[in-house]
Nucleic acid binder design. Structure first.
Length: 146
DNA sequence: GCCAACGTTGGC
DNA sequence: GCCAACGTTGGC
């Protein structure tokens, strides 16, 4: 193990589908897409902690309010190309697989072991960490292997 | 469409 | 450095 290596970490990316949907993400294929436009320090700091190969949930906010797919970090944090402002950087992510069935916010709120998720406790944070236990539960609810 | 939560900005 | 005003997000 090299210094700085760690186990895979898990995250959650929120997007309003009318702006950027799971289908848009899938259409980008292996190449992936910059997760740009984040202008929140907490969300940015989470992206700075990401390493290539980390997995994330893709969550649709607003109308749908459900985790719909799995993504993978394919480029670590770099300058956000939509701004000159050096404060803002972001990772690239690519779609890995859709959930067999979406896991709704209502279900997540109902599950006692998911009550501590930022999705529940800090509704406005758009890029957030997910624990390994939370990851496993949501994958199970979504009908796919973790 | 409303409103609560919360982050950011700017005046002092 | 505080805090009021304001803007934005996102659930309901």
């Amino acid at each position: 193990m090299e210094p700085g290596d760690r186990l895979m970490a898990f995250w959650l990316f929120k997007s309003e589908p009318s702006t950027w949907s799971w289908d848009d993400q899938v259409a980008k294929g292996e190449e992936g897409e910059e997760w740009d436009g984040v202008r929140n320090y907490q969300a940015r700091n989470n992206m700075r902690l990401m390493r290539a190969g980390d997995r994330g949930f893709f969550y649709h906010s607003q109308k749908e309010k459900a985790v719909v797919g799995i993504v993978e970090v394919c480029a670590e944090s770099h300058q956000d190309s939509t701004t000159e402002d050096a404060r803002w950087d972001c990772v690239d992510i690519r779609a890995v697989a859709p959930l067999a069935r979406p896991v709704t916010l209502a279900e997540i709120k109902e599950h006692p072991d998911l009550a501590e998720m930022a999705l529940v406790k800090n509704t406005r944070l758009s890029v957030q960490p997910v624990s390994e236990a939370e990851w496993a539960i949501i994958c199970e609810l979504g009908g796919i292997a973790p």
